[in-house]
Amino acid sequence: MSDELASGYDLVIFDLDGVVYLIDKPIPGAAEAVERLRADGTPVAYATNNASRRAADVAALLTGMGVPAEPDEVLNSAGAAAAVLAQRFPAGSPVLVVGAEALRAEVREVGLTPVATFEDKPVAVVQGYGPEVGWQILAEAALSVRAGATWVATNTDRTLPSPRGPLPGNGSLVAVLRTALDREPDLVVGKPEPGLFTTAASLSNSERPLAVGDRLDTDIQGAVGAGMDSMLVLTGVSGPAELLAAPPERRPTFVSADLSGLFRPADEARLPLRATEAGGWRVDGSTLSGSGDPVTALRLLCGTVWDGVPLEELTADSPEATDLLKKWGL
């Protein structure tokens, strides 16, 4: 039997932004990774907090990038939020939508009526990411929630990745209403809530799924909450310093520079690596020395820091280690 990491799982659930693509450009190697999984007979699913595209649009976008995808393989927070609202309110009920047209379409498809003003007397406010969201619709939302409308957020990602660096995400827009209303949303649907993960596993009849993401506070925490193994890839938001500082509920099973880690031995990615030396690196107490693959050094330091050595006490004792810690902001 293959010792490839992916061979130990019967479903791989990918996050999208920062894992498969950045905004609208594929991350190198992503298409090849998905095709290789399919060739090996491993089902895939895509679970995203981004509420600005519908499942069919996401599948079309992926396919256009050379990443094979079907609409029923895509689970997003817009569809999940609309489904929750349809369970709570009668057909035709007015729902104020803060977000992109995709979110309005999801609300409409479940039989509810998207509205845009407080005067429409919405029974709920659903808030998802949309690049055109501005003060006016946020004001209508604030008035509606204050009047008693249920406030549902598709997700609370503070940022979203881009080729130019992290940009404000839906969580930043939710924070505007949180500040104005001095309260939290009544419900957050997307990750780190486990629903997208458990639904993906259920649809595939998966008994041993693996979640792959780039964010510790959503992808990895959601997988931990769902009782699933997870792999952090360092192509998006969360970097080495954040991983080292992660509390137990945000610690992945594996870490890899990119999706190629799916096809290497699991023991080359497993966290933490509790050893004094590996792959040319050595850890002596809080001191890193040697040289080699940066991910191996990261795994060694996770073992050290997660076992109690304070992050701020890490030091370097070789030029390569010095450069690495500096690059990580340590």
Rank of each mutant, 00 (worst) to 15 (best):
residue 1 M to K: 09
residue 1 M to A: 05
residue 2 S to Q: 12
residue 2 S to F: 01
residue 4 E to G: 00
residue 5 L to K: 04
residue 6 A to C: 14
residue 7 S to R: 14
residue 10 D to S: 07
residue 11 L to F: 10
residue 13 I to E: 03
residue 17 D to S: 05
residue 20 V to G: 00
residue 20 V to L: 15
residue 22 L to Y: 06
residue 24 D to I: 00
residue 28 P to E: 15
residue 32 E to G: 03
residue 34 V to D: 12
residue 35 E to T: 11
residue 35 E to G: 04
residue 37 L to A: 06
residue 39 A to E: 15
residue 40 D to R: 12
residue 42 T to K: 05
residue 44 V to W: 08
residue 52 S to V: 07
residue 52 S to N: 07
residue 53 R to T: 12
residue 60 A to F: 02
residue 67 V to T: 09
residue 77 S to A: 15
residue 78 A to H: 10
residue 80 A to S: 06
residue 83 A to R: 15
residue 93 S to Y: 10
residue 94 P to I: 12
residue 100 A to K: 00
residue 101 E to I: 10
residue 102 A to T: 11
residue 105 A to K: 10
residue 107 V to E: 14
residue 108 R to V: 04
residue 109 E to A: 15
residue 113 T to N: 07
residue 119 E to M: 06
residue 120 D to C: 08
residue 120 D to T: 01
residue 120 D to S: 11
residue 122 P to Q: 10
residue 122 P to N: 07
residue 122 P to E: 07
residue 123 V to M: 15
residue 129 Y to E: 03
residue 131 P to S: 04
residue 131 P to W: 02
residue 135 W to Y: 15
residue 137 I to M: 13
residue 137 I to T: 14
residue 139 A to L: 12
residue 140 E to T: 02
residue 143 L to W: 15
residue 144 S to Y: 11
residue 146 R to K: 15
residue 153 A to Y: 06
residue 158 R to Q: 12
residue 165 G to L: 08
residue 169 G to R: 07
residue 170 N to S: 03
residue 170 N to Q: 13
residue 173 L to C: 01
residue 174 V to D: 01
residue 177 L to P: 02
residue 179 T to E: 05
residue 180 A to V: 14
residue 182 D to T: 05
residue 185 P to S: 07
residue 188 V to E: 03
residue 192 P to R: 00
residue 200 A to T: 02
residue 201 A to K: 08
residue 208 R to V: 12
residue 209 P to F: 13
residue 210 L to W: 14
residue 213 G to M: 06
residue 213 G to L: 08
residue 215 R to E: 07
residue 216 L to G: 09
residue 220 I to R: 01
residue 222 G to D: 04
residue 227 G to Y: 15
residue 232 L to P: 08
residue 233 V to C: 11
residue 238 S to N: 10
residue 239 G to S: 08
residue 242 E to A: 15
residue 243 L to R: 05
residue 243 L to A: 01
residue 244 L to V: 05
residue 248 P to G: 02
residue 253 T to F: 02
residue 259 L to Q: 10
residue 259 L to I: 09
residue 261 G to I: 03
residue 262 L to C: 11
residue 264 R to P: 06
residue 265 P to K: 06
residue 268 E to N: 11
residue 269 A to D: 09
residue 269 A to T: 10
residue 277 E to G: 11
residue 278 A to I: 04
residue 279 G to C: 02
residue 285 G to H: 03
residue 285 G to Q: 03
residue 286 S to Y: 03
residue 288 L to I: 10
residue 290 G to L: 03
residue 291 S to C: 02
residue 292 G to C: 09
residue 292 G to T: 10
residue 292 G to R: 02
residue 301 L to C: 01
residue 306 W to D: 04
residue 309 V to Y: 06
residue 309 V to E: 14
residue 321 A to P: 07
residue 326 K to M: 08
residue 327 K to P: 00
residue 327 K to W: 08
residue 327 K to I: 02
residue 330 L to H: 04
